[in-house]
Design a protein around this nucleic acid. Structure first.
Lengths: 240, 240
DNA sequence: AATTAGTAGTAGTAATACTATCATAACCGA
DNA sequence: TCGGTTATGATAGTATTACTACTACTAATT
């Protein structure tokens, strides 16, 4: 199955999916950002890698930040689609939540092939530096361009699943963004800053994310579950 | 009361607290990073702002990333100290957790004056782009230099408070880093990407963080609270 | 008064992040 | 087959950034 997202048109000058060079820019861009990190990646390296020129690359993306936004948007759209596929025909809200968590953790989609996007590498990039897409000074301007619509839609979709489990819950969107961010952080921490997490990084892909799933599931389900009488009777404290 | 942290000596070439110029670098650095954002901030702007030269600034910090690391470390140390002060002499573990949450949300410390650090601006910078301190390709090298020891110590301190509430809880460190990151994210989202959160940004400082506190409290306390029988009997599902 | 250690300032370089212009090859309908 | 458009490539140039090397000064020490 071939899929084609409509990534926000404001992110590119010329649709990279429409040409061979454009697809090369995407696939080599992913590889090089993974290899060098976003700060050390530039269009010179990219154009050399694909045997082209800087000016040709600039015809597709205004600068590397826009290319990065494009890729992160692609990831958000792709994750959103995978959640839809994973939760379709499932009725039990708890199972639905488990499927969502599993989808956010993993980076595979059965029967789908996008030859110019390596989803596993892209997921690693997003876990490492995806938050740079919006953690900067120009966020308000880029928000007006719609650069974060895909992220918002993804959060909306997840928060709706949460509300199916508990329609009374007051913070579904915060919990949705929390799920995504905490998931990515713990994947990253487990590999690079293990003292900031309890979930272990394992190369054995069968048990790789077992702890992470358990941790996220308890975080989400417990938050959504109404407190029992035992818990709400803790003493109330005046703060400050 | 004057305080003086020992920020990791590997972050600077010459201790900025030891001279007037160094203190100017810190205070103007905070102001300019807030104003321009980290990407658009540089040592030329900084040196002009304080009426000095680039080369003088370079004598204190190897580059702007190291200055940034210094400032974020300062924030972590400062938050750690505030947590200690806020939880001292408090026995009820739940109240302790509430104090921790409140401390992480806010950026004030009574009776303490560090004239060259504007803590409110620094907190805003950390909420906006603090995670850039470790979300990059050189994280492993910088981790060896001890750049993130203060963050790890902060997480350790918070996770110990969590364990007082529930010594059985399996993911205290993950929950601690989650608290910090989710707090900062929601402060930032409420102002810039409100669709990613349910907590509202308010200029009225009395109610400013009421929702955020409530959200974080429910997230933490519910995670730490052992599930009642009702909840653990949900059907178990085989995932993929 | 001479020596020296430490710090500020000047100048310069290499790399980055673009922009502009022109050439050329493919492709496309008339 | 012609003329026009599109896609890419080649070359050059600029402004800014991120430094580095060197010089000049100051202040304490002998």
């Amino acid at each position: 199955m071939a899929i084609n997202f409509k990534v926000n048109v404001n992110t590119f000058l010329k649709d990279p999916v429409s040409t061979d060079l454009g697809k090369k820019i995407l696939s080599a861009g992913i590889r090089l950002i993974d290899e060098h990190g976003l700060e050390d990646f530039n269009f010179k390296k990219l154009s050399q890698e694909i045997g082209s020129t800087e000016s040709s690359v600039y015809r597709y993306f205004e600068n590397k930040h826009y290319l990065f936004i494009y890729l992160v948007n692609w990831y958000w759209e792709w994750t959103s689609m995978r959640i839809s596929l994973a939760t379709i025909n499932i009725d039990d809200p708890k199972v639905k939540i488990q499927k969502v968590i599993k989808t956010v953790i993993e980076s595979t989609m059965a029967n789908v092939d996008v030859p110019f996007i390596d989803e596993e590498i892209l997921h690693r990039i997003v876990a490492r530096e995806g938050s740079k897409a919006y953690h900067h000074k120009l966020v308000d301007k880029e928000n007006q361009y719609g650069f974060f619509l895909a992220y918002k839609a993804l959060c909306k979709k997840i928060s709706n699943v949460f509300l199916e489990f508990n329609p009374e819950y007051k913070y579904p969107k915060s919990l949705a963004s929390t799920l995504i961010e905490v998931c990515n952080n713990n994947i990253y921490f487990s590999k690079h800053l293990p003292r900031l997490t309890d979930v272990e990084f394992s190369k054995d892909s069968d048990v790789k994310h077992e702890h992470l799933f358990e941790m996220l599931e308890s975080l989400i389900i417990n938050s959504l579950t109404k407190k029992s009488k035992n818990n709400i009777n803790h003493p109330k404290v005046k703060l400050s």
